[in-house]
Amino acid sequence: MDNLVEIDNMTFRRVDRVIYDGISLHVPKGKITAVMGPSGIGKTTLLKLIGGQLTPDAGDICFAGDSVVSMSRSQLYKARRRMSMLFQSGALFTDMSVFDNVAFPLREHTRLSEDVIATIVALKLQAVGLRGAASLMPSELSGGMARRAALARAIALDPDLIMYDEPFAGQDPISMGVLVKLIRELNDALDLTSIVVTHDVKEVLTIADYIYILADKRIIGEGTADQIRNSESELVQQFLKGEADGPVPFHYPANPLESSLFGGEQ
C-alpha cells in the first residue's frame, strides 16, 4: 500500500454550508503533500477530518488502510498515536516549560523512565535547534520558536504522519526558511509522511512532492510543483500569481452597487 492517507469522494458540511463537495485526495507514504488554497476554504478542517476530530457527511477517509470514519473511539485514539499535528498557534501548553511540553506525549503514552525521556526530549529539541530553550516557558518564546517547540513535541512519539497547519503563517523570512528546511529534513530523516496545509505558494513549491489546490469546495488542480506551475487552469494561475480578481472574484457576492446606491435598497 503506497498511500498513507486516502480521501475518497468526501463531502463535508457545516450547518448548511458545504465545505467540501466530493473531493478525493491521496497522500503517498514518505512524501510531502501540500494542500493549498485561499484562506477560509477549510484547509484546517481537512486536517481535523483526517485526524477524526470531525466526521464527513459522505465518503471515506482512510489512514494506513483503515477508515477513520468508522473507527471506534479507542481505535481512533490508537491511530492518533501514529499521527501528529502542528497547529498554527503551536498550541503549546502554557502552564508547562518547553521541556515538559515535549515530554508530555512520552509521559502520557509510554512507561519510559524520566532519564530516557530526558534524553529523547533533548534529541528532539536538538533537531529543531531549541535544546538550549528547554527550560523556557511558552510565553518566553517568539512565534517561530514556539512553532519549532511544537514541532519537537509533534515528533516526540515518532509518528508516521505529521500534519502541518499553516506552518509559515506570520513568520519572518528567517524562521520561514528554518521551518521549510525542518519540514523537508524531518520528513526524510525520520521517514515521515507530511501533509502541509498552507497558502504560501513560493515556500511550498520548493519542498512539496505533490500539490493539491483547493478552491470552491473541490480540488481545482493537482500535480508536482512543475505541473502546477505550468497548469493551464485560470484558477490555478490566479492563485499562484496572487491576482486580486479572476475566477475567484474580488467582490463578495452582492447586488450591483448602483442598485444599492440608487435603488432605495437598505
Binding site: 481535523k48 485526524g51 490508537k78 492518533r80 501528529s84 497547529f87 498550541a91 502554557t94 508530555f104 506525549p105
Partner: peptide
C-alpha cells in the same frame, strides 16, 4: 489556543 484540540490529536 487549540490546546484542547492538540490534546485530542495527541490521543
Amino acid at each position: 489556543t487549540e490546546q484542547l484540540s492538540s490534546l485530542e490529536m495527541m490521543a
